[in-house]
Design a protein around this nucleic acid. Structure first.
Lengths: 256, 256
DNA sequence: ACACTATACCGGTATAGACCGGTACAACCG
DNA sequence: CGGTTGTACCGGTCTATACCGGTATAGTGT
């Protein structure tokens, strides 16, 4: 009745068992076979029904717990967490994904795509290039439901994405393009501050000059820890809000 | 020579062994006995020198890895991570801690501490109270190196912190006070947006009226998932910057 | 009816051993 | 000398087992 049986995992060593189990349970959650608040199969249940050891089952479940999909109550069991709680976890997403998640239709108007000639020193240093002409700049007005949402200026290393100048950045997501070229994004450092829109910026964003705006600076890194993109995004203060979930870290002590 | 010996852990069950080991290694990192980039003792080394099982040692090390203190390279060993990479992780901190981390001297000027009579509906709903007079409001001007940094208005449930009205909020950290009363903070939901300082606000922050400001709304929860604090903080746009590290989530697939 | 107790679960912790593929290095061989 | 082959160590994965204290419930005794 549970849907987990020995055939659901292969033990040929090609994929770690715990990772297969993780995918199995995740699938049950996402297809609704397990719904919010419901008790997930216990560690012992998973272990015996799949014919694996309890520690292996536990490894899978622990991962799902730390990813926010499940939470445990000692003595009672493991339960499916509220999706609201896991969505607000901070995650690296593209503008496109971000808007879709907010229920808005993402769009873009290309303002410039060229080999950058005037790059701020800070950007050059961050991207690890010295001279000019080593970065490609992309300037786009991003829209949500057709209305201007933010003004985005990206810099990418020409050496790593020489084909970028030929791409259609009007419609698609830059991140999707990068991934289609096998550039895997892994993490990003993001800085947010409040500022005012300049005359030019406010015109593009269709807000009054001097309106509040959220300036987001992002440095995106590949899975090999190389910076692949530096972006400055200026969001309309009245339409955009950045959300995050913060967690308390360990307290010191307890030892000896 | 390594500094780990059997006497460093107690097995009386009062504190989990892996958690003691975690503290031991963390201590070695923070006291500089292990420095950035250096190889940490291997799982087997830790296990034998402390007289514990390898899996237990591994549990401790895994935790430190997921917390960003260490990183592993299969076949080579476990290494101490660059502190720069672990500091920017998103963490729930008080204003006091935040400022100290930025190398600034935190301060506060109490503007108001009272039973709140006019509480916005949204705040009441969030905090789960219905009527008036059920929340205590704290209004403080927070300073860094003596200069105004942000304007902070907190609401806390009177039922849970009735003693708050008698506390000294001039100097100390509110979070430290809560913890000294055994109220453990676990997580917080935070929303950031750009806005403009009103006349009154800009006066307190000593900036021109209409200056950009970062509005941060935070709902803090205890370890029992009850909301304990709702804060609206208005930071000076020219002096404050919010930083976060974003990570790419798993891709689906791999199973079966 | 009520309180207690036995039982059967649960997750949390810990053990000892095993095998894998990757890394580093020294010893050996051509 | 240079290349190969051991060998020792590394983290990654997996097994089987054990005991703890908490939770829930059914049954027992008053």
């Amino acid at each position: 009745m549970r849907g987990l049986s020995r055939g659901d995992v292969n033990k040929d060593g090609s994929t770690p068992i715990y990772s297969q189990v993780e995918a199995l349970i995740l699938d049950m959650i996402e297809t609704g076979k397990l719904s919010t608040g419901e008790r997930a199969p216990s560690e012992r249940e998973v272990a015996t029904s799949l014919g694996i050891s309890r520690m292996t089952a536990r490894a899978a479940i622990s991962k799902l717990v730390s990813d926010g999909y499940l939470h445990t109550v000692a003595g009672k069991g493991t339960f499916v967490s509220d999706p609201k709680l896991r969505q607000d976890l901070l995650e690296l997403t593209s503008f496109t994904e971000d808007m879709l998640r907010r229920g808005l239709r993402p769009g873009a108007r290309l303002l410039g795509l060229e080999v950058a000639d005037q790059v701020p020193l800070k950007v050059r240093r961050t991207m690890g290039v010295s001279g000019d002409s080593e970065l490609i700049s992309v300037r786009r007005l991003r829209t949500a439901d057709g209305r201007p949402m933010c003004l985005e200026t990206s810099y990418l290393p020409r050496a790593k994405v020489p084909w970028l100048l030929e791409e259609d950045l009007q419609s698609g997501s830059l991140y999707r393009i990068l991934e289609s070229r096998s550039i895997e994004l892994a993490k990003a450092e993001e800085h947010l501050e409040a500022t005012l829109a300049t005359e030019e910026e406010s015109e593009l964003l269709t807000v009054p000059a001097g309106s509040p705006a959220l300036l987001i600076e992002r440095i995106t890194y590949t899975d090999r820890d190389e910076p692949i993109e530096y972006v400055k995004s200026l969001y309309r203060g009245d339409r955009y809000r950045f959300s995050a979930m913060l967690f308390k870290k360990r307290k010191k002590g307890g030892g000896s």
